[in-house]
Nucleic acid binder design. Structure first.
Lengths: 344, 344
DNA sequence: CTGAAAGCGCTTACAG
DNA sequence: CTGAAAGCGCTTACAG
């Protein structure tokens, strides 16, 4: 293979010092227009491309944004496989990063320590963290001197970082209110894990708020947990619900995946959706519109979430590390009504 | 922020030269057990983490695997958004990469030139390319001295690289044969673009092969193109098909996304699936099992595809750049029968 | 406006 | 077995 072209080759070709080449590359103003043009010409002619590794080492910045996704313990592959949600987010991050000349690096993370190691060893310029991480992670992160964006997080240390989230309570509220206004009173709530998921807790708060406003008594027996966001978990749970509560007329879920799985379980058992039971999802994954019946859901713009997260990083970096103003951005949500819900 | 810990700090702490620290880090055998232990202890005590940027520059390798996804022209975000397929693949790549101490970097690529620039500037150790790229890209890539894996590619230069693919003709064959054996004779074929997609061409070959074997005449009017793999495109096409060919009894598609969209179009028009028309998808995305009716499809293990691609890179790297043995790995596929197909 | 020199954090022949 | 020195490809005060 042909030897790697370096800044010195360009310098020689242009008849200047390699420092000068670096200056034009970095747009340092002290180079005369004339030499600048000469250098630029040489760069083009030789098809020279600067080595980011070397630049990173020199400048102590990598132009890389890291995206961390929590790993699922019992799965060999990362959480990635499970949920299309992450995918849309990644897409948003990558798009904005690329537009701003950053590359995006992704990793699944199990142990909190791995995370900091990762940032340090790769000299990551910014970090986006998805979902819930153990307390310990945040103290680790605090030692890092880079902009960090948390997505969908409600931990205590949240305001020490940038945040991108939605109003989860409002989401639960809108979903539930929709059902109540349709006349439903026996409404189930399906979360993943009400003990460990702050997101679910917020949505459940919204759910209960509607019950208070409409003076409906909520029977705690109508609260269910799937413990994982997969179709299979949802189907099992749906069958369980069917076997226990024949009087349930509507269900609010915290994820389209769960909603779709429950619909499937009901349909397999000869129940008609929405005639026998109304179901509301959460997220508005693209598939929701195309299943049968279409899934009524709370729409959040996941792509925007990713884009905003990357924008926060880019902006922080532009402002300089001295003044990371940690911001919280809330992405709007709204109810999308489709065929899976119906008045009774 | 506390100053970055370097190899020299460790050396000082352990009372050896920084070269010695590097030796134990790289497991160069010439260090005595005793000093090795001393150094290891210092590393642990100081919580030292080597800087990959510096290592990359020195070793001229980055421990990064790049994943390139083609961009869609008229979309601001990359192709990522569209198709869950890419997501599962990414997940497979990331998993294997991480297990082997590589990081994975992703980018959407528009112009072929960008691609080589990317590899050079980031010193990528290996490259995985998804889908179809213009001819020009391959000549660009040829100049690169790193292992490259193409996924689902049929270009001319294909055998100069590693390949991971499926037997697309067999896929089309299995899908079509299933329908023919159910008694269907008026079978439509829905591809994306028969002119530009070699994958589609292969699947269509399999489709036609069945027709020959069973002596069924294929009417070219039953060949349709969606030009993009989105639900919306599929719905439009489905409505188009309905308006033209009322006599069609079954449809083979090249993607679950298309299959699901067409089912949706038919259902909206009061057609019953599978009573009025049988539909076969392709890929077996996780959703297929849970929609109503379940989608009969050709299952391919997308996660494996990604894992195998990453494994090929890792192995090539282990063997050394002298002997990149370009391999082609074919991932098995099989027909999965669900509710969307029926005998007539 | 231009260039020589030191430095970013590591690796790796080379000499002892 | 250990260490001094040069080098990876770039940047950036500093002096002229």
């Amino acid at each position: 293979m042909n030897k790697k072209l370096t800044i010195r080759d360009v310098a020689k070709h242009a008849g200047v010092s390699h420092a000068t080449v670096s200056y034009v590359l970095n747009d340092v103003k002290k180079v005369s227009e004339e030499t600048k043009l000469k250098v630029l010409a040489s760069i083009k002619e030789l098809d020279y491309h600067p080595d980011f590794t070397a630049i990173s080492l020199s400048k102590r910045k990598s132009n890389i944004i890291g995206l961390m996704v929590p790993l699922i313990k019992d799965s060999p592959a990362s959480m990635f496989t499970k949920n299309q949600y992450y995918y849309e987010l990644l897409s948003g991050v990558e798009t904005v990063a690329r537009e701003n000349n950053f590359d995006t690096m992704i990793t699944g993370v199990g142990e909190p320590e791995e995370c900091r190691d990762w940032v340090i060893k790769r000299n990551l310029d910014g970090l986006i963290i998805l979902g819930i991480f153990p307390e310990q992670l945040y103290t680790e992160m605090k030692k890092l001197d880079i902009p960090i964006v948390l997505i969908d997080t409600y931990e205590e240390h949240t305001n020490e970082y940038n945040n991108v989230k939605i109003d989860d309570e409002l989401g639960g509220y809108l979903a539930t209110k929709h059902l109540v206004e349709l006349g439903h009173r026996n409404i189930g709530f399906v979360g993943t894990n009400l003990k460990t998921s702050p997101v679910d807790i917020r949505r459940f708060e919204g759910f209960k708020k509607v019950h208070r406003e409409y003076n409906i008594l909520f029977d705690e027996k109508l609260l269910f947990e799937s413990f994982d966001i997969t179709f299979d978990h949802a189907v099992s749970l749906g069958e369980h619900i069917l076997s226990i509560h024949q009087d349930i007329t509507a269900i609010v879920t915290v994820s389209d995946i769960l909603g779709i799985g429950i619909i499937n379980a009901f349909q397999k058992n000869k129940k008609h959706i929405p005639n026998d039971c109304s179901i509301v999802g959460f997220d508005d994954l693209s598939i929701c519109k195309y299943i049968n019946p279409g899934l009524t859901t709370i729409k959040q713009d996941i792509l925007s979430k990713g884009m905003v997260a990357a924008e926060l990083i880019v902006k922080s970096l532009q402002l300089g590390s001295s003044s990371f103003a940690n911001k919280t951005v809330e992405i709007p949500i709204n109810l999308v009504v489709r065929g899976s819900t119906k008045a009774i």
